[in-house]
Write a protein that binds this DNA or RNA. Structure first.
Length: 480
RNA sequence: GACCCCAUCGUCUAGUGGUCUAGGACGUCGGAUUCUCAUUCCGAAAAUCGCGGGUUCGACUCCCGCUGGGGUCACCA
């Protein structure tokens, strides 16, 4: 191990476990590892921590990888899989056993349970007693020969005292190694435990900086002890706060909230929004700039400026930000995004001409549907809505409107339309708004739509007249 | 319970000893523009800087204690 030559610059890694879809928190951590690598001209490595065979699932891995790609967080090396690296963990653990830095433990889970309970009742820290520490070689050999179930534990050196490390964000953090206990590093099956696999990987992959959420602060001293046992250089550490639930109670969790990147994608959020929002939670641009592209982040990211207090996830701000991005798009860009997003849309070509009308009216791509469905299907009429108009003789007005429409030169233009019906409203001594709202309802079934006359221009004369007629007919049957 | 981390408007934050009667953003509430809704623009309310002690001529800024919140204590990762 002493041949750990000079490190080839900054090497960081992201190590998700495929036990669930790509989580917001995982993506958050990925962004900052990615940015640090880019900023420092280093490498960003993706490693899949799949040693928990019971919970790992290739579907989740696929989801994680696709999610990261969707966000545009590309890695330089990997994905590596821990399950492919079993021989490395095995040889590392054997080396530790041989040198006495780790030992076989034959305690049963029942025994450990009793031990733990006693400690809890005595209000003492829960630490392994070290019962199997002093087993002689013969005793060990005998038990192994008898096939007694075992695990391998790290021997925390006597008198190791305080484990200190200098966190890049928090400064010095220290833990009493006596409170750590001899942790299990390998199962009898030869599959390593998390802290051990991480350290062996980080050594083999020459990781220079371990950058992660502060839920890992308490893992850090354990990992340092393993680095030390393996005589390896210890990487630098930095821990930032996790994203909190909107009510600030607890780390962001499922239950009430969407937490997977896929949820947000399906809900119509843009990848640039999510990345931008992450950056807002993580650190602040010098001049309070809030709209930040990934490119700009890569140019300005400063790890040392990351914040130490946890921030609550705020959906309203995320939606506002998404709206900002949507409005910044050119019509062509937004059209393309919508066409990609609306996989099953019945008429993707028509989206292009509708886009200018709705760009300022949607916050999420999914908002497109309820705002524009009337272009593609006949509306349902609700007479309660019509009552709100306070027009006495709706049917007569509708017929006037119909006649006017039929007399208009084709193709219809929004401008002419507007003037025509302003005039008609005056003629009938109706408030202009009421007249427009009646047409709006006839055409869409709703009180809220994109600009009316531009919409009608797109809808076309045939469909528009059809709908006016439909509503008149509905009135006839309603009257009876 | 033990250990560790954190603490400025409802939320996200600026603020690194005097420029703070605390600035910005989201949200909220008014107003203007307007065919509805949005957008855009203008304006308002909103933090005695968690509390209590120090240090200092002077503290949101430094130190200590308390309180509160969070995290971790697995043969999960």
């Amino acid at each position: 191990m002493s041949e750990t030559t000079m490190q080839a610059g900054v090497r960081v890694r992201m190590a998700p476990s495929p036990t669930g879809n790509l989580h917001l928190g995982t993506a958050y951590t990925t962004l900052f590892n990615y940015l640090y690598a880019r900023r420092m001209g280093g490498s960003f490595i993706l490693r899949i921590e799949d040693t928990d065979q019971a919970r790992s699932n290739p579907e989740f891995e696929k989801n994680i990888i696709e999610g990261l790609k969707w966000l545009g967080l590309n890695w330089d090396e990997g994905p590596f899989h821990q399950i492919d690296r079993l021989p490395s963990y095995k040889s590392a653990s054997e080396r530790l056993i041989k040198s006495g830095k780790a030992y076989y433990c034959f305690c049963t889970s029942a025994e450990l349970e009793v031990e733990k309970k006693k400690q809890q009742e005595g209000k003492r820290p829960i630490v392994y007693s070290g019962k199997c520490r002093s087993l002689t070689n013969q005793e060990v050999a005998k038990k192994l020969a008898e096939n007694v179930k075992f695990v391998v534990r790290l021997r925390v050196p006597e008198g190791r005292g305080v484990v200190k490390f200098n966190d890049l964000l928090h400064g010095e953090i220290s833990f009493d190694s006596n409170l750590l206990g001899d942790m299990v590093i390998m199962r009898g099956s030869g599959v390593p435990l998390y802290n051990f696999a991480v350290v062996v990987d980080d050594i083999d992959m020459n990781i220079s900086h371990v950058l992660r959420g502060d839920d890992h602060i308490s893992n850090t001293p354990k990992q340092i002890l393993i680095f030390e046992a393996l005589d390896a250089d210890i990487p630098k550490f930095a821990h930032w706060p996790m994203i909190l639930n909107p009510d600030r109670i607890g780390k962001l969790s499922k239950r009430a909230n969407a937490t997977s990147i896929e949820d947000f994608r399906k809900d119509g959020f843009l990848p640039e929004t999510i990345l931008n929002y992450f950056s807002l939670l993580g650190w602040t641009m010098p001049d309070d700039q809030e709209i930040i592209s990934l490119q700009e982040m890569e140019e300005t990211f400063d790890l040392s400026k990351m914040r130490l207090s946890g921030a609550a996830f705020n959906m309203e701000k995320l939606e506002w930000l998404n709206g900002e991005y949507i409005r910044k798009f050119t019509d062509d860009e937004l059209t393309q995004r919508l066409q990609e997003y609306l996989v099953d849309h019945p008429d993707k070509q028509a989206i292009a001409q509708i886009v200018p009308l709705i760009k300022e009216r949607i916050k999420k791509l999914s908002d497109f549907i309820p705002l524009t469905d009337f272009f593609f299907e006949k509306p349902e009429y609700d007479f309660e809505i019509l009552k709100k108009l306070k027009i006495e003789n709706i049917r007569d007005v509708l017929i006037e409107i119909k006649n006017k429409m039929e007399s208009l030169p084709k193709p219809w233009s929004a401008k002419l339309f507007e003037q025509t019906f302003r005039d008609l409203a005056e003629e009938l001594s109706l408030p202009v708004v009421s007249c427009f709202q009646l047409i709006r309802i006839a055409v869409s079934g709703k009180l809220v739509t994109p600009p009316l006359f531009e919409s009608i221009e797109i809808l076309g004369n045939i469909k528009t007249l059809e709908r006016i007629n439909d509503l008149i007919l509905r009135f006839d049957s309603f009257d009876k």
